[in-house]
Amino acid sequence: MTTIATSVADNIARIQQQLQQAAATAKRNPNSVRLIAVSKTKPTALIEQAYQAGQRDFGENYVQEGVDKIQQLSGLTDICWHFIGPLQSNKTKDVAAHFDWVQSIDRLKIARRLSDQRSPDLPPLQVLIQVNIDDETTKSGVSEAELMPLAEAINALPNIELRGLMAIPAPGAASGQTTSFATMHGLFLKLQAQYKQVDTLSMGMSDDVVAAIEHGSTMVRIGTAIFGARST
């Protein structure tokens, strides 16, 4: 009988193969795409199973849930925790203290609070600016016009390090997503030309990962395809 652990391991192996194949097809290094396992709403037992299968990057959307898991799994010292959800100012202290990356910066106020609240004894918090590439009213993120001024301000802050961009294109026709991905890649190259430490473009989920990689994504966020559907 196939166990859940075997299923998680098999899912990760299959997805890694898919990522490597997509990168190779795009004439990129097959190992140039980093997989973030989105573990929101999933129990720590499944995270441990993914860890045993070699997965090290995990993404959480909710601050308290994420902090609880980080504390429970503190013995797994080489896990890299990514906060990938919208972040309110009253939650920044916990994120600054516990996470390694924040992928959803969309306001200077949030970046400043993270910088002020990140202990100098910890490595700098790695941050991505979220771009609302399709101007959706239901999504967080800055506009294209706001991006470079925000990047300049973030780059001057201590205790955090600007590493790149994140986006969640609108669902819909493949042609529309392709345009969004191409625009994001252009913005990423512009940012990278200005700030040499910038090396991360986080975009692509289960349904659009191949197109995202074709357009330069270096980090993809996948949950259900690893852990299974959310329990109700």
Results as ranks from 00 to 15, higher is better:
G223Y: 00
A9P: 11
S104C: 03
Q177D: 08
Q17E: 05
P158N: 02
A50D: 05
G216C: 12
A26K: 04
S175G: 11
T2D: 09
E146Y: 10
P171N: 13
A22D: 02
F181C: 12
K93D: 00
I84T: 11
A174I: 15
L189F: 01
N155D: 02
N155C: 04
H185I: 06
V102E: 01
G141K: 01
L73T: 06
G85A: 12
T183Y: 05
S115A: 03
L201A: 11
I222C: 10
S115K: 00
Q52Y: 03
I36V: 14
G172Y: 08
G172V: 09
R34C: 13
D57M: 11
T6G: 05
L128T: 06
D94S: 14
I15K: 09
S140Y: 10
L162C: 04
A53Q: 08
V63M: 06
P120K: 15
D134Q: 10
G204E: 09
G223Q: 00
F99N: 07
L162N: 03
L76W: 06
Q192T: 01
S217K: 06
V127C: 06
K42H: 14
W81T: 08
R113L: 00
A22F: 07
S7T: 15
D135K: 14
N155T: 02
L147R: 05
T218P: 04
I12H: 05
D208S: 12
L125V: 13
L76R: 02
K69P: 03
N61V: 02
P120N: 15
I15Q: 07
T200D: 06
L201C: 08
I70T: 09
Q17H: 07
Q194R: 15
M203Y: 04
G176I: 07
T218W: 09
I222R: 01
N31L: 07
G54D: 05
K91H: 01
I110E: 00
D207V: 13
I154L: 12
G186K: 13
I12Y: 06
I222D: 12
L165K: 04
I36N: 07
I133C: 04
H185W: 09
I160E: 03
Q130I: 04
Q52K: 14
R56F: 06
V102S: 05
R230L: 11
Q103I: 10
E48N: 13
Y195V: 04
K196A: 14
N29D: 15
N155S: 06
V209R: 11
K139C: 08
A151S: 04
K196Y: 04
Q16W: 08
I168D: 04
E48S: 14
I226T: 07
D134S: 10
N132C: 04
D10R: 08
H82W: 09
T2P: 15
W81V: 10
L165F: 10
D121H: 12
I47M: 12
D134G: 08
G164I: 12
T44M: 14
K196S: 14
E161S: 15
N29S: 07
K190H: 02
